[in-house]
Design a protein around this nucleic acid. Structure first.
Length: 419
RNA sequence: CGGGGUGUAGUAUAUCGGUAGUAUCUAUGUUUUGGGAACAUAAGGGCCGGGUUCGAUUCCCGGCACCCCGACCA
């Protein structure tokens, strides 16, 4: 993409009403736009990152048997009354509205009811199980206080998978698989080294749920990490009894602030009971379906990555989710330089390498460098009189301070090899 | 939801009970081009409503919005 066509511009000043690092950097660099407290739009750069995160999650979900679908955002009151979660006394962060005829509807704040209600039509036999449908969806929660930029919004984009299994054993097998898939996801998006499987409150039907917590000072949760085995315990369930049951020693545990980037949860028959979600087994007897849910907030994940991977100049995107792989800067308005930059842009894009081409002619070199650092694309390639005189193009990684000169062939080979 | 704070140009800010200033951004021109260039010219502003006052952006009241702390948060 040519930067001259990218309508967003970087800002030198931080927005006065944002304190959180993720929102400050993402707004300054032009990835997101704040609409109101807790509500952000994704601009072209931001959408590219979200789509990449989405694809990584999709691959991992498909790999463990996930089947993608999409549930509606508008939800009917009747369905939610079955589980007892329509009442504002039970769930106080509903966004509710009414149809013209007065019928009450809600904007989905989670998906258990929607899935239970739909799957009831399709599950009748043991032959129909297990199944693992999931979707990516905008979720609405009327938080009394949103905060921390895109880490906690009133509207956010998430992935939720629901597992429907014949019994606890079958459920547990998938549950363990999902842990591995989640680890893969956080490794792939570049925060695996900071993300811990964390034991948290499990509710009625299981002793624990498992959170994936990423260590960052911007986090809202407090967790205790055992660095020896990479396991953590959320403060909410941190006590001697729990430590003992997990085989952890208190003196090993290190306290950290962390943000919950994912959560997996055994639901048992909590929802299959009210929805009468049953299947007939081989003997013709009815059994309740055993469910689990597996969520990841994509916006929160993107914000967490920015919180943990940035420096004083801007964002440092991991290659896997960067909006572009290469930021190509053409310096000056020398005709030869411009032609060589065009040439390079065309040959890289022809090979399917994603390039943001700073082809703007009225911008000083310093400003282009500053923009490039702020946006945080992994590779920066500079074409200038100087680089051509030195024998080609200068390539520098965002994380490095000095670049090196290489030829166009070397450059293409290098970037192709990294695909 | 409880407590605290803030609303001035697209953005970031300053001053003042009496013609609202600066930077940045934008437009035009000239000179620049390896770390947010220089000069000139131009355009652009007091959240909404009420009160006090000769006069309110400033003081007071109400509303709304935003931020922070706490509570809440599959």
């Amino acid at each position: 993409m040519r930067q001259s066509q990218l309508f967003t511009k970087t800002k030198k000043e931080s927005p006065a009403d944002e304190v959180s690092l993720n929102a400050e950097l993402l707004i300054r660099a032009g990835f997101i736009n704040k609409e109101m407290a807790g509500v952000y739009s994704y601009l072209p750069l931001g959408l590219r990152v979200i789509k990449k995160i989405e694809n990584i999650i999709r691959e991992e979900m498909n790999a463990i048997g996930g089947i993608e679908m999409k549930t509606s955002i508008i939800q009917s009151k009747e369905v939610w009354e079955k589980s007892g979660r329509w009442s504002d006394d039970v769930v106080d962060n509903w966004f509710k509205t009414k149809l013209k005829n007065g019928t009450e509807v809600g904007l989905s704040f989670t998906n258990e009811e929607a899935y239970s209600n739909i799957l009831k039509q399709y599950i009748s036999s043991y032959k129909d199980l297990p199944i693992y449908p999931y979707d990516f969806k905008d979720i609405f929660r009327n938080e009394t206080r949103s905060k921390s930029g895109i880490l906690r919004g009133r509207e956010f984009y998430w992935k939720a998978l629901y597992s429907f299994s014949k019994n606890a054993e079958e459920h547990n097998v998938f549950y363990e698989k999902s842990k591995e898939a989640y680890k893969n996801i956080f490794n792939k998006v570049g925060i695996g080294h900071l993300t811990y499987l964390t034991f948290a409150s499990g509710g009625t039907f299981s002793k624990f749920s498992h959170e994936f917590q990423t260590i960052t000072s911007a986090g809202e949760d407090t967790i205790y990490v055992d660095p020896n085995n990479g396991i953590a315990v959320n403060k909410e369930v941190y006590n001697d009894e729990v430590l003992e049951s997990l085989g952890l020693k208190k003196e090993d545990m290190v306290e950290n602030k962390a943000i919950e980037v994912g959560n997996i949860f055994s639901l048992g028959t909590k929802f299959s009971t009210p929805f009468d979600l049953k299947y007939k087994d081989e003997k013709g007897e009815d059994n309740l379906v055993v469910m689990g849910c597996y969520g990841i907030g994509l916006g929160r994940l993107m914000g967490t990555i920015v919180e943990t991977l940035s420096d004083d100049k801007g964002i440092i995107w991991p290659e896997s989710i960067a909006p572009f792989k290469v930021h190509l800067l053409s310096l000056g308005d020398d005709e030869n330089v411009k032609n060589r930059a065009e040439e390079l842009y065309n040959s890289l894009t022809a090979k399917g390498i994603e390039v943001l081409f700073d082809d703007r002619t009225d911008i000083s070199a310093g400003e282009k460098f500053a923009d490039s650092d702020l946006i945080g694309v992994p590779y920066r390639v500079v074409v200038s009189k100087r680089s051509l005189a030195d024998g080609g193009f200068e390539i520098k990684k965002r994380v490095e301070s000095n670049g090196k000169i290489i030829t166009i062939d070397e450059l293409v080979n290098l970037l192709e090899a990294k695909r």
